[in-house]
């Protein structure tokens, strides 16, 4: 009788310890391992940014047109000329930092904010821009159009 009474709370206490220990161990390990497993899954976007970026795929862009792409934290402008050559420049206007665009009708780069115009070499030809646009290197890798920051001479 006496032994029974003391045995009852003892087993329930052991149960509690087992629950806390087992549950805690499993739950804590799960909460440590879950982020690690998710971390191991490579993200869909492989591009790192930096000094090189895949601006577009061949065929994404029609001749005599331009496309804005992201280059690090700034926009870039990729242009496909009629003769099939690519050209990439910084798309940040040197006047007040608006994003420039390619004007197929003018064959020039145009900033809508204050009508600044650059030629395809990035030179500021009219309007308020004080400096030329930075020109990037473009080359093809497979069907990817890769843009590089020019190495400073």
């Amino acid at each position: 009788m006496c032994a029974d009474q003391t045995a009852q709370p003892k087993t329930s206490r052991r149960r509690a310890i087992e629950l806390f220990l087992g549950g805690g161990l499993l739950a804590s390990l799960a909460s440590f391992i879950y982020p690690v497993l998710r971390f191991l899954v490579p993200p869909a976007v492989i591009d790192l940014g930096g000094d090189e970026v895949v601006a577009a795929k061949v065929g994404d862009i029609k001749p005599n047109s331009g496309k804005i792409f992201r280059f690090g934290s700034r926009p870039g402008l990729l242009i496909l000329n009629n003769d099939g050559t690519y050209r990439a420049l910084s798309a940040t206007c040197t006047h007040l930092g608006c994003t420039v665009q390619y004007r197929p009708d003018l064959r020039e780069i145009w900033c809508a904010c204050h009508n600044g115009i650059y030629d395809l070499n990035g030179r500021n030809v009219s309007g308020p821009p004080p400096r030329p646009l930075t020109v990037f290197d473009v080359h093809l890798r497979g069907d990817e159009i890769v843009v590089n920051r020019k190495r400073e001479a």
Binding site: R13, R14, A16, I17, L19, F20, L21, G22, G23, G24, L25, A27, S28, A30, S31, F32
Partner: peptide
């Protein structure tokens, strides 16, 4: 919330360990 869940798990484990040590 994720952190909260993790901390609860840790707390549970701590309680479990403590009880086990006591026992």
């Amino acid at each position: 919330i994720g952190l909260g869940i993790c901390l609860i798990a840790i707390a549970m484990m701590l309680v479990g360990l403590w009880l086990y040590i006591k026992k």
